[in-house]
Simulated assay, not measured.
Amino acid sequence: MSQFGSVFFPEMILARFDGESWSDAEFVPSDKLTLHPGAHVLHYASTCFEGLKAFRHPDGRVAIFRMDQNIARLAQSSALLSLPEFEPAQLAEMITTAVARYADKIPTPPESLYIRPTHIGTEPCIGKAAAPSLESLLYVLLSPVGDYFAGGLKPLRLLVEQDQTRCSAHMGMVKSGGNYASAMFPTMAAKKNYKADQVLFAPGGDVQETGAANFLLFDGNELITKALDSSFLHGVTRSSILTLARDRGIKVTERNLTVTELLERVQANPNCEAALSGTAAVLAHVGTLISDGKEYTVGTGEAGPLVKSLREELNAIQWGQAEDRHGWLTFIS
Protein backbone atom coordinates (compact mmCIF):
# COMPACT_ATOMS: atom_id res chain seq x y z
CA MET A 1 0.00 0.00 0.00
CA SER A 2 1.39 3.40 -1.02
CA GLN A 3 1.80 6.19 1.51
CA PHE A 4 -1.43 8.18 1.83
CA GLY A 5 -1.30 11.10 -0.62
CA SER A 6 1.81 9.93 -2.49
CA VAL A 7 0.08 8.81 -5.71
CA PHE A 8 -1.28 11.42 -8.14
CA PHE A 9 -3.28 11.41 -11.33
CA PRO A 10 -1.05 12.45 -14.27
CA GLU A 11 -2.61 15.90 -14.72
CA MET A 12 -3.60 18.81 -12.53
CA ILE A 13 -5.59 21.92 -13.36
CA LEU A 14 -4.20 25.41 -12.74
CA ALA A 15 -4.78 29.11 -13.27
CA ARG A 16 -2.37 32.02 -12.92
CA PHE A 17 -2.85 35.56 -11.64
CA ASP A 18 -0.42 37.95 -13.37
CA GLY A 19 -1.05 40.94 -11.13
CA GLU A 20 -4.10 42.11 -13.05
CA SER A 21 -6.28 39.16 -14.03
CA TRP A 22 -6.65 35.40 -13.83
CA SER A 23 -5.83 33.18 -16.78
CA ASP A 24 -8.18 30.50 -18.03
CA ALA A 25 -7.74 27.21 -16.20
CA GLU A 26 -5.73 24.56 -18.04
CA PHE A 27 -4.58 21.00 -17.51
CA VAL A 28 -0.82 20.44 -17.16
CA PRO A 29 1.33 17.48 -16.03
CA SER A 30 1.04 17.03 -12.29
CA ASP A 31 4.70 16.17 -11.79
CA LYS A 32 6.13 19.50 -12.94
CA LEU A 33 5.81 23.04 -11.63
CA THR A 34 8.21 25.80 -12.70
CA LEU A 35 8.88 28.60 -10.21
CA HIS A 36 11.43 31.38 -10.17
CA PRO A 37 13.95 30.78 -7.34
CA GLY A 38 12.93 34.17 -5.96
CA ALA A 39 9.21 33.30 -5.88
CA HIS A 40 7.50 34.81 -2.85
CA VAL A 41 6.25 31.44 -1.63
CA LEU A 42 9.76 30.00 -1.37
CA HIS A 43 10.99 32.79 0.91
CA TYR A 44 7.96 34.15 2.76
CA ALA A 45 5.61 31.13 2.90
CA SER A 46 2.72 32.69 0.98
CA THR A 47 0.96 29.35 0.61
CA CYS A 48 -2.34 27.84 1.66
CA PHE A 49 -4.21 24.72 0.65
CA GLU A 50 -7.28 22.58 1.25
CA GLY A 51 -8.06 18.90 1.53
CA LEU A 52 -11.40 17.44 0.47
CA LYS A 53 -12.61 14.15 -0.95
CA ALA A 54 -14.71 12.74 -3.76
CA PHE A 55 -16.44 9.38 -3.40
CA ARG A 56 -17.88 6.83 -5.81
CA HIS A 57 -21.45 5.89 -4.88
CA PRO A 58 -23.12 2.50 -5.41
CA ASP A 59 -25.04 3.89 -8.43
CA GLY A 60 -21.75 4.88 -10.07
CA ARG A 61 -22.10 8.62 -9.51
CA VAL A 62 -19.23 10.61 -8.00
CA ALA A 63 -19.89 13.04 -5.14
CA ILE A 64 -17.60 15.67 -3.62
CA PHE A 65 -18.07 16.22 0.12
CA ARG A 66 -18.66 19.82 1.35
CA MET A 67 -16.77 21.48 -1.48
CA ASP A 68 -18.31 24.87 -0.74
CA GLN A 69 -16.91 24.90 2.79
CA ASN A 70 -13.40 24.04 1.64
CA ILE A 71 -13.49 26.71 -1.06
CA ALA A 72 -14.70 29.30 1.45
CA ARG A 73 -11.89 28.37 3.82
CA LEU A 74 -9.26 28.61 1.07
CA ALA A 75 -10.59 32.05 0.15
CA GLN A 76 -10.33 33.04 3.82
CA SER A 77 -6.78 31.69 4.08
CA SER A 78 -5.80 33.51 0.89
CA ALA A 79 -7.16 36.79 2.23
CA LEU A 80 -5.34 36.39 5.55
CA LEU A 81 -2.10 35.75 3.64
CA SER A 82 -2.80 38.73 1.34
CA LEU A 83 -2.74 36.49 -1.73
CA PRO A 84 -4.68 37.66 -4.83
CA GLU A 85 -8.42 37.15 -4.54
CA PHE A 86 -10.07 34.47 -6.62
CA GLU A 87 -13.75 33.87 -7.34
CA PRO A 88 -15.14 30.84 -5.46
CA ALA A 89 -17.04 29.84 -8.60
CA GLN A 90 -13.75 29.76 -10.49
CA LEU A 91 -12.22 27.27 -8.08
CA ALA A 92 -15.42 25.23 -7.93
CA GLU A 93 -15.32 24.85 -11.70
CA MET A 94 -11.64 23.88 -11.59
CA ILE A 95 -12.33 21.19 -8.99
CA THR A 96 -15.40 19.74 -10.70
CA THR A 97 -13.72 19.81 -14.12
CA ALA A 98 -10.67 18.00 -12.79
CA VAL A 99 -12.73 15.39 -10.92
CA ALA A 100 -14.95 14.81 -13.98
CA ARG A 101 -11.86 14.27 -16.12
CA TYR A 102 -10.84 11.31 -13.96
CA ALA A 103 -14.28 10.24 -12.77
CA ASP A 104 -13.93 6.73 -14.18
CA LYS A 105 -10.70 6.21 -12.22
CA ILE A 106 -12.08 7.16 -8.80
CA PRO A 107 -12.01 4.06 -6.55
CA THR A 108 -14.91 2.65 -4.55
CA PRO A 109 -15.19 3.02 -0.74
CA PRO A 110 -13.42 2.80 1.59
CA GLU A 111 -11.00 4.29 -0.94
CA SER A 112 -11.65 7.77 -2.31
CA LEU A 113 -10.19 10.66 -4.29
CA TYR A 114 -8.29 13.20 -2.21
CA ILE A 115 -8.45 16.70 -3.72
CA ARG A 116 -5.78 19.27 -2.88
CA PRO A 117 -6.49 22.86 -4.07
CA THR A 118 -3.40 25.01 -3.46
CA HIS A 119 -2.76 28.75 -3.74
CA ILE A 120 0.80 30.12 -3.73
CA GLY A 121 2.47 33.49 -4.21
CA THR A 122 4.73 33.42 -7.28
CA GLU A 123 6.00 36.99 -7.70
CA PRO A 124 9.82 36.83 -8.13
CA CYS A 125 10.95 39.30 -5.50
CA ILE A 126 13.06 38.64 -2.40
CA GLY A 127 12.56 42.17 -1.12
CA LYS A 128 8.97 41.57 0.00
CA ALA A 129 9.38 40.19 3.50
CA ALA A 130 6.64 42.56 4.70
CA ALA A 131 4.64 42.88 1.48
CA PRO A 132 2.36 40.46 -0.37
CA SER A 133 2.92 38.67 -3.64
CA LEU A 134 1.06 40.39 -6.48
CA GLU A 135 1.19 37.25 -8.61
CA SER A 136 -0.04 33.78 -7.72
CA LEU A 137 -0.81 30.29 -8.89
CA LEU A 138 -3.96 28.33 -8.06
CA TYR A 139 -3.91 24.62 -8.83
CA VAL A 140 -5.74 21.40 -7.95
CA LEU A 141 -3.98 18.07 -7.41
CA LEU A 142 -5.86 14.75 -7.39
CA SER A 143 -4.67 11.77 -5.37
CA PRO A 144 -6.50 8.42 -5.16
CA VAL A 145 -6.18 7.23 -1.57
CA GLY A 146 -7.01 4.35 0.69
CA ASP A 147 -7.83 4.48 4.37
CA TYR A 148 -5.56 6.93 6.21
CA PHE A 149 -4.85 4.20 8.76
CA ALA A 150 -3.40 1.53 6.49
CA GLY A 151 -2.98 -0.92 9.36
CA GLY A 152 -6.51 -0.34 10.63
CA LEU A 153 -7.86 2.05 13.23
CA LYS A 154 -6.02 2.01 16.53
CA PRO A 155 -6.37 4.21 19.61
CA LEU A 156 -4.06 7.21 19.40
CA ARG A 157 -1.59 8.41 21.99
CA LEU A 158 -1.46 12.19 22.44
CA LEU A 159 1.20 14.17 24.27
CA VAL A 160 -0.42 17.17 25.93
CA GLU A 161 1.91 20.14 25.33
CA GLN A 162 1.24 23.20 27.50
CA ASP A 163 4.37 25.24 26.79
CA GLN A 164 4.62 25.27 23.00
CA THR A 165 2.08 26.42 20.43
CA ARG A 166 1.25 24.80 17.11
CA CYS A 167 1.61 28.17 15.38
CA SER A 168 1.12 31.90 15.93
CA ALA A 169 -2.27 32.43 17.54
CA HIS A 170 -3.53 34.80 14.85
CA MET A 171 -2.59 32.33 12.09
CA GLY A 172 -4.20 29.17 13.44
CA MET A 173 -7.31 29.45 11.29
CA VAL A 174 -5.20 29.65 8.11
CA LYS A 175 -4.53 26.29 6.45
CA SER A 176 -0.96 27.19 5.57
CA GLY A 177 2.11 25.03 5.13
CA GLY A 178 3.99 27.13 7.68
CA ASN A 179 1.63 26.04 10.45
CA TYR A 180 2.32 22.39 9.75
CA ALA A 181 6.06 23.05 9.57
CA SER A 182 6.07 24.70 13.00
CA ALA A 183 4.33 21.69 14.55
CA MET A 184 6.67 19.14 13.00
CA PHE A 185 9.62 19.31 15.42
CA PRO A 186 7.59 18.92 18.64
CA THR A 187 5.57 16.15 17.00
CA MET A 188 8.69 14.23 15.99
CA ALA A 189 10.10 14.71 19.50
CA ALA A 190 6.85 13.40 21.03
CA LYS A 191 6.98 10.31 18.83
CA LYS A 192 10.58 9.63 19.79
CA ASN A 193 10.38 10.36 23.50
CA TYR A 194 6.84 9.24 24.37
CA LYS A 195 5.81 6.98 21.47
CA ALA A 196 3.00 9.47 20.94
CA ASP A 197 1.11 9.67 17.65
CA GLN A 198 0.41 13.39 17.87
CA VAL A 199 0.85 16.42 20.09
CA LEU A 200 -2.24 18.03 21.57
CA PHE A 201 -1.23 21.67 21.78
CA ALA A 202 -2.61 23.37 24.87
CA PRO A 203 -0.57 26.56 25.43
CA GLY A 204 -1.10 27.91 28.91
CA GLY A 205 -3.44 25.00 29.62
CA ASP A 206 -5.91 25.91 26.82
CA VAL A 207 -6.71 22.77 24.82
CA GLN A 208 -6.60 23.65 21.12
CA GLU A 209 -5.76 21.03 18.46
CA THR A 210 -3.07 18.63 17.32
CA GLY A 211 -0.66 19.36 14.48
CA ALA A 212 -3.16 18.17 11.86
CA ALA A 213 -6.59 17.62 13.43
CA ASN A 214 -9.24 19.08 15.71
CA PHE A 215 -9.84 17.63 19.20
CA LEU A 216 -13.23 16.49 20.49
CA LEU A 217 -14.18 15.23 23.96
CA PHE A 218 -17.31 13.11 24.54
CA ASP A 219 -18.43 13.00 28.18
CA GLY A 220 -21.80 11.36 28.72
CA ASN A 221 -24.30 13.05 26.42
CA GLU A 222 -22.08 16.10 25.90
CA LEU A 223 -19.54 16.84 23.18
CA ILE A 224 -17.02 19.50 24.22
CA THR A 225 -14.68 21.24 21.80
CA LYS A 226 -12.94 24.59 21.66
CA ALA A 227 -15.03 27.49 20.35
CA LEU A 228 -13.94 28.86 17.00
CA ASP A 229 -11.31 31.58 17.15
CA SER A 230 -8.18 32.51 15.20
CA SER A 231 -5.87 30.15 17.12
CA PHE A 232 -6.85 26.87 15.45
CA LEU A 233 -8.21 25.49 12.19
CA HIS A 234 -11.97 25.58 11.65
CA GLY A 235 -12.29 22.00 10.48
CA VAL A 236 -14.93 20.97 7.96
CA THR A 237 -15.02 17.45 9.41
CA ARG A 238 -15.32 18.96 12.89
CA SER A 239 -18.32 20.98 11.76
CA SER A 240 -19.89 17.89 10.16
CA ILE A 241 -19.44 15.76 13.30
CA LEU A 242 -20.93 18.50 15.48
CA THR A 243 -23.96 18.65 13.19
CA LEU A 244 -24.46 14.87 13.29
CA ALA A 245 -24.09 14.91 17.08
CA ARG A 246 -26.76 17.60 17.40
CA ASP A 247 -29.03 15.55 15.15
CA ARG A 248 -28.79 12.76 17.72
CA GLY A 249 -29.71 15.05 20.60
CA ILE A 250 -26.17 15.18 21.95
CA LYS A 251 -25.39 18.43 23.75
CA VAL A 252 -22.65 20.21 21.79
CA THR A 253 -20.65 22.71 23.84
CA GLU A 254 -18.14 24.94 22.06
CA ARG A 255 -16.01 26.63 24.70
CA ASN A 256 -12.54 26.79 26.16
CA LEU A 257 -11.41 23.54 27.75
CA THR A 258 -8.46 23.49 30.14
CA VAL A 259 -6.03 20.62 30.49
CA THR A 260 -7.02 20.35 34.15
CA GLU A 261 -10.70 19.91 33.28
CA LEU A 262 -9.90 17.50 30.45
CA LEU A 263 -7.88 15.20 32.68
CA GLU A 264 -10.42 15.43 35.51
CA ARG A 265 -13.24 14.40 33.17
CA VAL A 266 -11.24 11.54 31.70
CA GLN A 267 -10.45 10.18 35.16
CA ALA A 268 -13.97 10.67 36.50
CA ASN A 269 -15.88 8.99 33.66
CA PRO A 270 -14.78 5.50 32.62
CA ASN A 271 -17.01 5.82 29.54
CA CYS A 272 -15.44 9.08 28.38
CA GLU A 273 -14.32 9.20 24.73
CA ALA A 274 -12.02 11.54 22.83
CA ALA A 275 -11.25 11.82 19.14
CA LEU A 276 -9.40 13.71 16.43
CA SER A 277 -11.34 14.88 13.38
CA GLY A 278 -10.01 15.70 9.92
CA THR A 279 -10.55 15.03 6.22
CA ALA A 280 -7.91 12.31 5.99
CA ALA A 281 -8.53 10.54 9.30
CA VAL A 282 -12.31 11.30 9.50
CA LEU A 283 -12.74 10.57 13.22
CA ALA A 284 -9.96 8.78 15.09
CA HIS A 285 -10.27 7.58 18.67
CA VAL A 286 -7.84 8.84 21.33
CA GLY A 287 -6.88 6.11 23.80
CA THR A 288 -4.19 7.78 25.89
CA LEU A 289 -3.29 11.29 27.02
CA ILE A 290 0.25 11.91 28.25
CA SER A 291 0.72 14.91 30.53
CA ASP A 292 3.66 15.82 32.79
CA GLY A 293 5.11 12.35 32.37
CA LYS A 294 1.91 10.57 33.41
CA GLU A 295 -0.39 8.57 31.16
CA TYR A 296 -4.18 8.86 31.37
CA THR A 297 -6.35 6.23 29.72
CA VAL A 298 -9.41 7.60 27.94
CA GLY A 299 -12.38 5.32 28.57
CA THR A 300 -11.28 1.73 28.10
CA GLY A 301 -8.33 2.86 25.99
CA GLU A 302 -9.99 1.30 22.97
CA ALA A 303 -12.33 2.71 20.34
CA GLY A 304 -15.57 3.79 22.02
CA PRO A 305 -19.07 3.19 20.61
CA LEU A 306 -20.01 6.83 20.11
CA VAL A 307 -16.90 7.82 18.16
CA LYS A 308 -17.18 4.64 16.11
CA SER A 309 -20.85 5.21 15.25
CA LEU A 310 -20.35 8.88 14.34
CA ARG A 311 -17.48 7.93 12.04
CA GLU A 312 -19.64 5.26 10.43
CA GLU A 313 -22.53 7.68 10.00
CA LEU A 314 -20.36 10.30 8.32
CA ASN A 315 -18.81 7.67 6.05
CA ALA A 316 -22.25 6.37 5.12
CA ILE A 317 -23.28 9.85 3.93
CA GLN A 318 -20.04 10.30 2.01
CA TRP A 319 -20.29 6.84 0.44
CA GLY A 320 -23.92 7.21 -0.63
CA GLN A 321 -25.19 4.64 1.85
CA ALA A 322 -27.26 7.10 3.90
CA GLU A 323 -29.40 10.15 3.16
CA ASP A 324 -27.58 13.46 2.65
CA ARG A 325 -29.92 15.40 4.96
CA HIS A 326 -27.80 18.56 4.99
CA GLY A 327 -26.98 18.94 1.29
CA TRP A 328 -23.28 18.27 1.76
CA LEU A 329 -22.66 16.45 -1.52
CA THR A 330 -21.91 17.90 -4.97
CA PHE A 331 -22.46 15.29 -7.71
CA ILE A 332 -20.18 15.12 -10.72
CA SER A 333 -21.50 12.10 -12.63
Rank of each mutant, 00 (worst) to 15 (best):
D104G: 05
F86Y: 10
E50K: 05
N70H: 15
S112V: 00
M94K: 11
F55C: 06
A92V: 10
G51P: 00
F55H: 10
D104M: 05
A54Q: 03
A54F: 02
L81T: 07
S46G: 12
G60Q: 13
E111D: 05
A72E: 06
I71K: 12
F65K: 10
S82Q: 10
E111M: 03
A54S: 01
G60P: 14
S78M: 06
T97F: 13
G51T: 00
A103S: 07
E85P: 03
V62Y: 12
G51R: 00
L91I: 14
A63G: 15
H57N: 09
L113Y: 02
H57P: 05
R56Y: 06
Y44T: 02
D59S: 09
E111Q: 08
Y102G: 04
E93H: 14
I71D: 14
L91K: 13
D104S: 10
E85L: 09
L42T: 04
T108R: 11
A45I: 11
F86T: 09
Q69I: 13
S46R: 06
A79D: 11
E85H: 13
F86V: 06
C48N: 10
S82F: 07
Y102W: 06
N70P: 14
Q69K: 15
E85G: 07
R66M: 11
I64P: 14
M94S: 11
I95V: 15
E87R: 06
H43A: 08
V41W: 00
I71S: 14
N70M: 12
C48S: 09
D68E: 15
R61K: 15
R66I: 09
A100F: 04
D59V: 06
A63W: 08
